[in-house]
Amino acid sequence: MRYTLLLHYSEPAESDLDDAAIAEGMRRMSAYAAALHAAGVLLAAEVLQPSELTTTLRREADALRVQDGPLIDSKEQLGGTLVIDVPDLDAALGWASQAPALEWGGAVEIRPGATHTIDGVWTTGG
């Protein structure tokens, strides 16, 4: 079954992070991704740029509305995603419990996949 782990955590200002803190965060996320990969469950991963660089589209009537920035007003933002393929929710919970985002005061949302593409063709199910 495919699950997407959505990593939510606070986005500190760049001035709040020194080079050592950035390097440690990158090391922790790399180690986590390497463990998922070594277990053969990692399908894809993305660490996102800061939420201030977000552009959101909405359709209002027959027009598209383009909005700069995230839609939510929160200290925690979506910081990254990982797509894993594991037997069940318990296995997804086990992997999600190891996400560094939890130690950074954030949350990990676990959402089962409904459809995905293989070679550009939509497929249903996990």
Results as ranks from 00 to 15, higher is better:
76 E>Y: 06
48 L>Y: 03
38 A>S: 11
77 Q>V: 11
31 A>R: 06
61 A>Q: 13
113 G>S: 11
2 R>H: 14
83 V>S: 03
5 L>A: 13
58 R>Y: 09
119 D>M: 03
80 G>A: 03
80 G>M: 00
59 R>Y: 10
34 A>L: 05
117 T>N: 01
123 T>F: 08
18 D>Q: 02
2 R>T: 05
107 A>N: 11
24 E>F: 01
90 D>W: 12
96 A>C: 03
81 T>K: 09
87 P>E: 09
104 W>D: 11
30 S>V: 01
48 L>R: 03
105 G>Y: 04
29 M>I: 14
113 G>K: 02
16 D>I: 04
87 P>M: 02
43 L>M: 09
4 T>A: 15
40 G>K: 08
34 A>F: 00
119 D>E: 14
42 L>N: 04
53 L>M: 09
104 W>K: 06
75 K>W: 04
57 L>A: 00
52 E>R: 12
84 I>Q: 06
52 E>S: 07
28 R>D: 15
20 A>Y: 02
34 A>Q: 14
50 P>K: 14
45 A>V: 09
125 G>F: 04
117 T>L: 15
122 W>F: 13
42 L>K: 02
18 D>P: 07
16 D>Q: 15
87 P>H: 07
63 A>C: 15
108 V>L: 06
65 R>Q: 02
74 S>N: 13
7 L>W: 00
86 V>D: 07
69 G>P: 05
125 G>Q: 04
65 R>N: 10
31 A>C: 02
58 R>L: 12
54 T>F: 05
22 I>E: 07
12 P>T: 04
37 H>K: 15
115 T>Q: 11
82 L>A: 07
21 A>G: 03
75 K>H: 11
23 A>L: 10
42 L>Y: 06
86 V>C: 09
11 E>L: 03
9 Y>Q: 10
88 D>K: 11
40 G>I: 06
29 M>F: 09
51 S>C: 10
71 L>M: 07
17 L>R: 07
75 K>Q: 12
89 L>V: 11
24 E>H: 05
53 L>S: 12
67 Q>Y: 08
125 G>N: 08
122 W>I: 10
8 H>C: 00
126 G>T: 02
59 R>D: 05
69 G>C: 03
61 A>T: 06
31 A>N: 01
122 W>M: 14
39 A>G: 10
99 A>F: 00
51 S>N: 04
55 T>R: 12
114 A>T: 13
48 L>N: 05
91 A>D: 03
22 I>V: 15
123 T>L: 08
121 V>T: 10
36 L>A: 00
112 P>Y: 07
67 Q>K: 11
47 V>I: 15
55 T>V: 14
12 P>M: 01
73 D>Y: 07
30 S>D: 09
79 G>A: 09
8 H>Y: 10
111 R>N: 02
53 L>Y: 13
15 S>Q: 10
42 L>C: 12
33 A>M: 04
92 A>E: 02
20 A>Q: 11
77 Q>C: 02
25 G>W: 01
30 S>P: 06
96 A>M: 01
9 Y>G: 06
37 H>Q: 00
86 V>L: 13
52 E>A: 13
74 S>F: 02
23 A>K: 07
91 A>H: 08
45 A>P: 01
29 M>Q: 08
81 T>Q: 10
53 L>W: 04
14 E>C: 00
4 T>Y: 14
96 A>T: 05
44 A>G: 05
94 G>S: 15
78 L>I: 08
82 L>E: 13
104 W>C: 08
31 A>W: 04
